[in-house]
Design a protein around this nucleic acid. Structure first.
Lengths: 339, 339
DNA sequence: GTGAAAGCGCTAACAT
DNA sequence: ATGTTAGCGCTTTCAC
C-alpha cells in the first residue's frame, strides 16, 4: 500500500490534478458538484497531501522550532514541559509541527546552531525562557520570525507571550498583608531576570500601597538562580540575622520549598511560625507538605498563545512585535495563614 | 538572502548538479580534486540540502514520531521528559527530527490518529510508556517501524528499550535485607503493569534467596496507578492492619514519597522507624526530606538507545524485534538505614 | 569521473 | 469552472 497522490485522486474523480489541488485548498471557483466528487475520492483513498511536495513548492516546512536551554527543560518542576505541550496543542490546530531542541545554557561562539535552523527545516522559532545572548544574536541573522515565551531580552523588539509578573507579585504580597503580616521577606534568585524583577516590583507596590515601608534586611536577591537550594540558602541568611519576619514571598515555588525545608530543619512550622507563598504553581497540591500557596500561571495557555501568535505571523496577519500578557491567579492553600 | 540551492553550488564549483549531489553523499567515484572544490563552494555558500526536496524524491521525511499519553508527559516527575530528550539527542546524530505528540490515555475508537501519521510526516514511531491498545492497533496498520520504550504490550513482537526491572527489584530488596530488615513491605500500583510485575518478581526473588518467607499481609498491589496519592493510601492500609514492618520497597519514587508523607503525618520517622526505598530516581537529592534511596534508571540513555534502534531499523541494518535492556543502579541515600 | 535528464507530488500562473 | 504546464530542489539512471 503506497500512499495515494494527487494523481490518484484526480483519476478517481475524473478531474485534473489542478482541480484536486483547488478543492483541497477550498477554492470557491470549483462547482459544488465536482467539489463533492473530489472530496469523496479523497476520503475513499485516504489521501493526505505530501508535506515534502508542498514544502518544496511553497518554501514552507510547516515546522516550528522550539528552543530552550537543557537545564530549563530538565528541571524538576515541569514548567516548560507544560508550555511546550501548549505549543504542540495549538500547532495541531494550525497544521504545524513542533521541533524541540535544547541548547546548552552556556552557549559558546563555536557551538553549532540547532540543526533545524541550518537545515531550514522550520518556518519560525519559539524561544522559551532565557537563552544565551550570543545564541540569540546568531539566530537573528536567519530572518525567521521569532516568538518569545516568558523572557524577552532587554531592549529587543520581539513578539512574545509573558506572565503578568507585576500583578502576580502584588497579589501574593497583598494576600500576606491581608493576613495581617507586616514583616514580609522577599527572596528571589537573580534579580536581573526580568520576571523576578517584576515580581519584586509587584511586591514593592503592594507594600507601598499598604503603607508598609521596605525593609532591605529581609530582602534576599543575591542568589544565582531561583532554585530549591538557593531558597534554602536564602532562608539560612535571613534567619541567622535575627530578623523578625513573619511571612515570605518567594519568587517561585522552588525557592519557597527550599525555604520551607530550612525552616523545617530549624524546627519552625509553616504556616504557624512563618507564612510562605511561592509563584508558578508547579507543585501539585498533594505532593508537598504543607500544600503551597502560590500564584498560578497557566503554562499550557502560554504555549498555546505563543503558537497562535506564530501562526498569525506566518500568515502575515500580524507584523510588528505584539506582546501578550497572560493573567495570573492567586491560589491560597495551606502554607499561608493569619499572623 | 535566499537559501542557496544545489544549482548555486554547481555553478560556483563549475560542475553539474549531479556531481554536487554525489559529493554531498560522499560518493567515491568523484575525484579528490573536484570533491575539494565542491566542498569549498558548499562551505562558502553555507549550503544545506533542502529537506523537502530530498524527502520528495527519497520518500523519507527524516522525522520520527514520539507518542506518549498526556498524563505520562505531564506528571510531576520528569521521567518521560528525560527519555524524550534522549531521543532528541540521538536524533541529531542521525540527522533526524523528533515530532512529539501526546494522546489521551483513554483513546476512543473515533479519536483521530496523531497527524504525523495521517500526514505521513514520519518514517517511524517511538512509543514511550503504556498507550491504549486500541490506539496501538490502529497504528500498526501503517507499516511504520515502531520502537517501544519502557512498555511492551503483551504477546507483541516489537523492538524496544526496557528497564531491567527484575534486577532492580532484587537490588532494592537485597539492600534492605543487608540492613537487617526482614519485614519488608512491597507497594506497587497496578500489578498488571509489566514493569511493576517485574519489580515485584525481583522483590520475591531476593526474599527467597535470603530465605525470608513472603508475607502477603504487607504487600499492597491493588492501587490503580503508582502515584503519590496511592503511596499514601497504601501506607494507610498497611499500617492500620497492625502489621509489623520495618522497611518498604515502593515500586517507584512517587509511591515512596506518598508513603513517607503518611508516615510523617503519623509521627513516624524515616529511616529511624521505617526504611523506604523507591525506584526510578526522579527525585533530585535535595528536593525531598529525607533524600530518597532508590534504583536509578538512566532515562536519557533509554531515549538514546531507542533512537539508535530506530535509526538502524530505518537503515535496514536491523530487522526483527531486537530488545535492549538498560541496566539499573542502586542509589543509597538517607531514607534507608540499618534496622 | 562527470553530465544530462527524468521525475518525485505539489502549487500557481495561465489557457481554455 | 476546469485543465495544461512549468517549475520547486533534489536523487538517480544512463550516457559519454
Amino acid at each position: 500500500m503506497t500512499n495515494p497522490t494527487i494523481k490518484d485522486v484526480a483519476k478517481k474523480a475524473n478531474v485534473s490534478i489542478a482541480t484536486v489541488s483547488l478543492v483541497v485548498h477550498n477554492n470557491r471557483r470549483i462547482s459544488e458538484e465536482t467539489k463533492l466528487r473530489v472530496n469523496e475520492a479523497i476520503k475513499k483513498l485516504n489521501y493526505h497531501p505530501s508535506r515534502s511536495a508542498r514544502g518544496l513548492v511553497s518554501r514552507k516546512t510547516g515546522n516550528i522550532g522550539f528552543i530552550l536551554t537543557n537545564d530549563h527543560f530538565l528541571r524538576t518542576e515541569p514548567f516548560y514541559t507544560h508550555i511546550f505541550i501548549g505549543t504542540e496543542f495549538e500547532a495541531r490546530e494550525n497544521e504545524l509541527f513542533v521541533l524541540l531542541t535544547t541548547v546548552n545554557s552556556s552557549y559558546s561562539e563555536n557551538d553549532s546552531l540547532p540543526r533545524f535552523i541550518l537545515d531550514r527545516s522550520v518556518d519560525g522559532i519559539i524561544i522559551a525562557g532565557k537563552i544565551p545572548s550570543n545564541l540569540l544574536e546568531k539566530l537573528s541573522h536567519y530572518k525567521l520570525p521569532i516568538v518569545f515565551i516568558d523572557y524577552l531580552p532587554e531592549n529587543k523588539k520581539y513578539p512574545g507571550v509573558f506572565v503578568d509578573n507585576i500583578c502576580g507579585g502584588k497579589l501574593a504580597t497583598e494576600h500576606l498583608i491581608e493576613l495581617g503580616h507586616k514583616n514580609i521577606a522577599f527572596i528571589g534568585g537573580d534579580i536581573e531576570h526580568p520576571s523576578i524583577k517584576d515580581r519584586f516590583n509587584g511586591y514593592k507596590q503592594a507594600l507601598s500601597d499598604a503603607k508598609i515601608s521596605l525593609n532591605k534586611n529581609i530582602i534576599e536577591i543575591k542568589e544565582e538562580y531561583p532554585g530549591r537550594i538557593n531558597g534554602y540558602n536564602a532562608a539560612k541568611k535571613l534567619l541567622s540575622n535575627g530578623n523578625s519576619l513573619t511571612a515570605v514571598f518567594a519568587c517561585n515555588d522552588a525557592m519557597a520549598i527550599g525555604f520551607i525545608q530550612y525552616l523545617r530543619e530549624k524546627g519552625l512550622k509553616v504556616p504557624q511560625d512563618i507564612s510562605v507563598i511561592g509563584f508558578d504553581d508547579v507543585v501539585p497540591e498533594n505532593s508537598f507538605e504543607p500544600a503551597l500557596s502560590t500564584v498560578k500561571i497557566s503554562k499550557m495557555e502560554m504555549g498555546v498563545e505563543a503558537m497562535k501568535l506564530m501562526s498569525s505571523i506566518l500568515k502575515g496577519q500580524i507584523s510588528g512585535n505584539k506582546k501578550i500578557l497572560v493573567p495570573v491567579e492567586l491560589v491560597i492553600r495551606k502554607s499561608t495563614n493569619i499572623i
